[in-house]
Structures are given as structure tokens and as C-alpha cells.
Nucleic acid binder design. Structure first.
Lengths: 302, 302
DNA sequence: CACCTAAATAAGGATATTTTATTTAATGCC
DNA sequence: GGCATTAAATAAAATATCCTTATTTAGGTG
């Protein structure tokens, strides 16, 4: 039994004639006879009562007619559902991100994307960069966003945005807001920082290393797993910190903390999109990936 | 797109490998590759992400997997539903019958049939013989039962039972219960009969004609469309009648009417099953037809 | 680097399906 | 009753499809 047999059957039943069905299907009448015969043979029942002048369904034919209509419709529905997927009318996309991209960059990006492709369901998971990488390897996410460069031939890792880290201090700190200090001044300070391994922390340590200051020289009074928590600690006067400007912007504008420039210290770091080589497997993921690098989103770069 | 492609696809997805699926399906691995490729080409999407060591479904593949399972199941369900029909586990049968067969013979016959084939839904319509024939020609019924011989090459008409008509009279009628009268005695009587055209009426008139008594010689005081109504009229003393023994039996046993034999008058008549040449179109009808002529049902003959 | 596994590819061959041509069977019309 | 007409079945050849064997490619492994 196959689809063609059912289609031919439906048209013969519909048009009440082998010849008519043949014309409608652009095939010859014997071909129609052949298809009906093989279907009848397969099912072991007569489907039509053939008289001269009219072709009518038997009981089994009537039963098959209903079923066949459903099946044929289902077949064509598959085609259209897959098309919807291709045209991003439907689909789903699971994104994993570390905190800075996840909390400060993705929300706008996803908002823009969803306006353009409202049928796509988007899920976001937020965790550390290492976890994002694991998710990707386990295929739990389609795309990952993180603050550290990932190597490994399984994973494609592209920078998509430069993030600026800033030195922040409590408002009552001796440093002057908007002023500039020397790198060596940092070693005298108490620091509240994100945990080791986080993108922010790594970037800061790497920058210091370029100025020949080792991470052991810093006095770290507290490590926290969330940038927002770090900022709150700085607000409370527990120490100074280096965090993404994106996270610090609002507290700075509200005067809850202050920013101090550091002479000759490059605190920029790149943020990366990662995906594994199976990216062809999800249309929405592929499209979102291109989306990041196009149009006004480029404004995010600096 | 056809069924084979979907089946191959399902097994590749299930067994996570082209070679494994090929073995399971008793076909070669290239044939499996070919089927998957043509399905992918038709849908315009990659269905599997092929790596060495593992074959995994893409988003479109996952979507198709669910749909394909349903479709394939539906295909096999058709086969089994048609089989049920062939094996009379399901199906329906519409019978048309004139009053005597419909009210006095079919009920038992249908009861026995239903005990053997409980899945068959049976509908019975009761009307005059002429109407039964019309129903049959219109294919409104699968089988007909009537008291008159039907001719016409469209219709097959077989006798299946001999029905005995009996002369009945009110209990207070001068004739002796169980006694015998001469045919000529009939013309002096008032008759309550079934309408012209009914099987019973025709049989009676034919029998009289054989004894050279024309129907005009009878004095008919009432014509009724129902045998039960005729009997009730006789009970009420409105006249005598000739009715099927099957209908008269109970009132006779209860002493509500009495039976009188008529010397040398053959009041037997045959009852017929009719079906049209499309009888192959309904398994239940075919089986019911054979059922009538088999086993203990033969006891009905005399 | 050879070896192994699994899928893709190529080419020839086996099946299936379709077409053309013809037959059958019933209908309608002189 | 004979003859044209219509519609489906059948036969045989042509074609398309699908499958198999053999081979290639690619990645992983000892």
C-alpha cells in the first residue's frame, strides 16, 4: 500500500470513474485500473462495484474513503509543516548564555528577533561559560553566548561584541569619580570580584598580567557568583570591583557607585557566540546566528 | 513522498544508523541512503545530522518523526480495519422486509446471526414488497425479504421459506374450529384482508384462481395494511380472513380466533430473499445470505 | 600509518509502473 | 438485430524507479 494508490483511489471515488480520474491525475486509464487493482489485492477486498455507467464504492470502499482522505491530508500537512519550519513560521530555539550576555544583551536581541519571527519559541538558560559549553556539547542548546574563547573543533566560536569592563568603587571611596588612577594603585585596594573562571574575572586578570601584575597581588575580600551581587556589595562599601559596564550602567547613573578610569589598562573583552557543527539542524538557530551579525545590532559593537 | 520513505526514515531514527536500519529492513545500506535522500530532497530539509559514530535527528527530523509514526500507524490501521470488515468483526447490514418476514421470521434469524457476529450492526426496515424492491434498486438496503417473486436481471431472487396461510374466523363464527369447509363456501363470507399487492393477498387470490374462483367473487368488507390489524378485526367479528400462520399462531393458541381448513385449497406461498448483483459489496450481507440457508434455520422450511 | 566502521556514490540490473493498443461488455440508436 | 459508443480490463512493450554490488570517502582507533 502506498500514497499513490490512495490518491488514485480517492479520485476514482470522487469522480466516480476510472477514466475521469485518469484525466484528472494526468495518467492513462489502465494505470488507474492497475493502481486500484493492486490496492484491492493488498487489502483483499473489492473497493468499487464496477458497472457500465457507474462506479460505486463498496462497504469496504466507503470505509477506506474516509481513512484515505485523512491519510492523504496528513501527508500534505507534513510538507506544509516542514515548510513552516523552513520559513521560520514555527520552530524553537534554545539559547544558553553566561550572565552578562544573558542578562544585558540577549533580551534586546531576542526582542528584535521575535518581532521579526513571532512564531519561533525561544528559551534562554543562564549559567557560567563552562556550563554553556557543556550544554552545547550535549546538544541541550542550539546556540551559546559566553565571555571566554572556546576552543575545540566541535565548536565554532565567533566574537560578536566587545564588552567594556569598568572599575567601580563605593561613592564614599577616596578615589575621585570619573578620575583616573595608576594601575599600581589597584594592588592597595580591597576587591569584591566574580568567581575564578568567570569571563569577567579572567579578563581582568589577563589585563593585569599584561601590566605585570599577578592575580596573587590583589586583595580579594569576597567572590560572588553574580555581577549584580558584586555591584550591590560595592554599593555597600565592601570594596571596589571590575565589572561589565553593561551591568554597572544603571547603578552609576543613579549615583549608587562611581566609576574610575585606570591609566593604560585595557579592560575590553570580547563576547562570543558558540555553536556546534550541527547548526544546520535548526533553522531558527541558524537565522538567529546571522541575525546577530546584521543590521542595527552592529551598533552594539564599539 | 511515500510510505516506504517514511518507514525507512523511522527505522533510521529509531536505530540511529543507516546500516542498522538496512539490516532491520532487509535491504542494502545504499538503498536506505537513497530513500532518506529522496525524502530530504522532497521536503527540502536535512532530516539527520550525519556524523561518524552517530546519526541524530535535526529539528525538522524530530518533527517528521512524530508525524511519520502517526501516518505509518494509520496505514496499518487501515489494513486491520478492512480485515475486521472481512472477518465480520465489524460492519453494518441493512435489511428491508415485508411484514411477515420482517415481523415473524427475521427477529429470530437476526438474533442468531448477531450471537455469531456481535460486531455487525443490523438495521431493519419494514414495508410492502414493492417498497422493498425499490429500496434494493436504490441500494438503500443490502438484502430484501418479500412474499412475491421479483423478476429483473438486476435482482437475484431466491425462495428461502414456505409460509402457510390459514383461514381464520371469529370464535363465534358458525364454522367449526379445526373443521374443514369447501372452497365454494368462501364466496358467501365477508372478508377482512390485507391490501391488494401485498404478498398474502396475491397468494390468496392466486390460490382461488386455481380453483376457478375470481377475486371479484369475494366480498371484502375491509382492507388493512397490517396483518396484525387484520387479525384484530377478525377477533372483533368483522369477518373472516386468510393470513400467514406465523401471524395467527399466538391469537389461535389464545383462542381469540379459530382456524378452519379449506378442502383442496393450497394456501402455501414462498418467501424470497432478494439482493442485487452488487452483493459482493457487503461482507455482512453476503454472510447473512448464506446464513439463511444453513444450519438449524432450515427447520423453518416445511 | 594501516585498519575499521559507517555513509555516500556509481553503475548495472531487477522491479514496478505507465503507456499504447486491443479486447470486452454493456448501452443506445437506427 | 446490427452498429456505433462508452468505459473498464487486459496484454505487451517502454520507461521509471528502486535495489544491489562494488567502490569511495571520511573519521576514528590501535
Amino acid at each position: 500500500m502506498n500514497l499513490k494508490q490512495l490518491e488514485v483511489f480517492l479520485w476514482v471515488a470522487e469522480l466516480k470513474g476510472f477514466t475521469k480520474a485518469a484525466k484528472r491525475l494526468y495518467m492513462s486509464q489502465p494505470a488507474v485500473s492497475f493502481q486500484i487493482q493492486s490496492l484491492e489485492e493488498f487489502l483483499g477486498v473489492k473497493l468499487f462495484w464496477r458497472n457500465e455507467k457507474n462506479v460505486i464504492l463498496t462497504e469496504a470502499g466507503k470505509l477506506l474513503f474516509e481513512q484515505a482522505k485523512q491519510i492523504v491530508a496528513h501527508f500534505y500537512k507534513i510538507k506544509s509543516v516542514v515548510n513552516d519550519l523552513k520559513e521560520l513560521k514555527t520552530g524553537s530555539l534554545t539559547i544558553g548564555a553566561s550572565t552578562i550576555p544573558g542578562e544585558y544583551i540577549l533580551p534586546k536581541l531576542i526582542g528584535d528577533f521575535r518581532r521579526q519571527f513571532p512564531g519561533i519559541q525561544i528559551n534562554v538558560r543562564i549559567a557560567g561559560s563552562a556550563q554553556v559549553e557543556k550544554w552545547l556539547l550535549n546538544r541541550e542548546i542550539d546556540l551559546g553566548f559566553c565571555g571566554t574563547l572556546i576552543s575545540g573543533k566541535e565548536i565554532e566560536c565567533l566574537p560578536f561584541l566587545t564588552d567594556h569592563l569598568v572599575l567601580i568603587a563605593p561613592v564614599d571611596h577616596p578615589w575621585e569619580a570619573g578620575g583616573e588612577i595608576k594601575i599600581s594603585d589597584l594592588v592597595k585596594e580591597k576587591f569584591v570580584l566574580r568567581e575564578s573562571g568567570s569571563g569577567t574575572r579572567k579578563t581582568f586578570e589577563t589585563s593585569l598580567a599584561r601590566s605585570n601584575i599577578s592575580k596573587e597581588q590583589l586583595s580579594i575580600v569576597m567572590e560572588m557568583g553574580s555581577t549584580r551581587a558584586v555591584i550591590t556589595a560595592v554599593e555597600a562599601g565592601l570594596g571596589v570591583s571590575v565589572v561589565s559596564f553593561l551591568a554597572a550602567r544603571d547603578p552609576l547613573l543613579l549615583g549608587l557607585i562611581k566609576e574610575i578610569r585606570v591609566h593604560n589598562l585595557d579592560l575590553n573583552r570580547k563576547l562570543y557566540v558558540i555553536r556546534d557543527q550541527s547548526w544546520m539542524s535548526n533553522f531558527a538557530a541558524e537565522t538567529f546566528h546571522s541575525f546577530i551579525f546584521t543590521q542595527e545590532n552592529n551598533l552594539l559593537f564599539s
